[in-house]
Simulated scan of single mutants.
Amino acid sequence: MQALNFPKYSFRIKNSQNRHYIFDGIRKKFVLLQPEEWVRQHVVHFLVFTRNYPKSLINVEKQLLVNKMKKRYDVVVFNPDGSIFLLVECKAPGVTIDQSTFDQIARYNYELQSNYLMVTNGMEHYYCQMDHANEKYTFLKDIPDFSR
């Protein structure tokens, strides 16, 4: 897999039947290593090992309903009270982040009401802070460290 615009992390990777799998410490299982999963695992490591987010508050690849349609978010970080602190949308490195990507995370966040958003393809990262009361968002240079 290609190098991404994240710090270097150590991953557990195995080969089975000529397919590569990467260990997901949140789901506690090996998952098929595809380009988007490579980005997702870098995000999780970034949150845990660089930003000090507790693993216990991170959820990966869970279903949600958006306009009565089943969708899956990539990564969510919860606040200790159960509200959502951060919603992350991951794309494969070869996928250009464009308006449709921001529209997708906005639809998900309409349901989830996260305080912060992150969109990444592993090479480019975008961060936003939400102002739900005024239905606005502000782009940030980075996401905050976890400090609770």
Rank of each mutant, 00 (worst) to 15 (best):
H20I: 07
S56N: 12
S100Q: 08
F46I: 01
V60P: 01
R148A: 13
F11L: 05
R12F: 13
R107I: 02
F146D: 08
D142I: 06
D145Q: 06
F85E: 12
D24N: 07
R107L: 13
L64R: 03
Q113L: 13
N15K: 15
P93D: 04
Y127R: 06
L4N: 05
V44L: 08
H42Y: 03
L33H: 03
V119A: 10
Q41R: 00
Q2Y: 13
Y137K: 13
S56M: 05
V43G: 02
Q129D: 05
N18Q: 14
V76A: 05
L87T: 02
K8R: 12
P35M: 02
N109S: 03
Q2W: 12
E36Y: 06
F85L: 15
Q99F: 12
S100L: 11
D24Q: 04
D81Q: 07
T120N: 00
E135F: 15
L4K: 01
N109Q: 00
A106K: 13
S56R: 09
N15H: 09
V95S: 11
I22N: 01
V76E: 06
N79S: 10
K14Q: 12
P80E: 08
S147K: 14
H20A: 10
Q41T: 01
D145E: 10
D98W: 04
R12E: 15
F6G: 09
H20T: 08
T101N: 10
F78C: 10
N121F: 02
L47F: 10
G122F: 01
I97K: 00
D98R: 10
E111P: 05
Q17V: 11
S83L: 02
H45G: 08
H125Q: 12
R107V: 06
K55I: 11
L32F: 12
T101R: 08
L57V: 07
Q41E: 08
P54K: 01
V48I: 15
N5D: 14
Q63F: 09
V77W: 00
R51P: 14
I22M: 01
S16I: 13
V66I: 10
D131E: 09
P35R: 00
Q63C: 09
C90D: 03
K136T: 10
K91Y: 04
P7R: 03
K55Q: 13
R107E: 12
A106I: 15
G94I: 06
V76S: 04
H132L: 13
L65H: 04
N79M: 05
Q104N: 06
H132R: 02
D145F: 14
V119N: 02
R107K: 13
V77N: 00
I58C: 05
Q104I: 07
V39R: 01
R148H: 15
L117C: 09
L112P: 14
L65V: 09
F23P: 08
Y73C: 00
K91T: 05
N52I: 04
R19K: 15
Q2G: 10
N134G: 01
H125W: 03
N79P: 07
R107D: 12
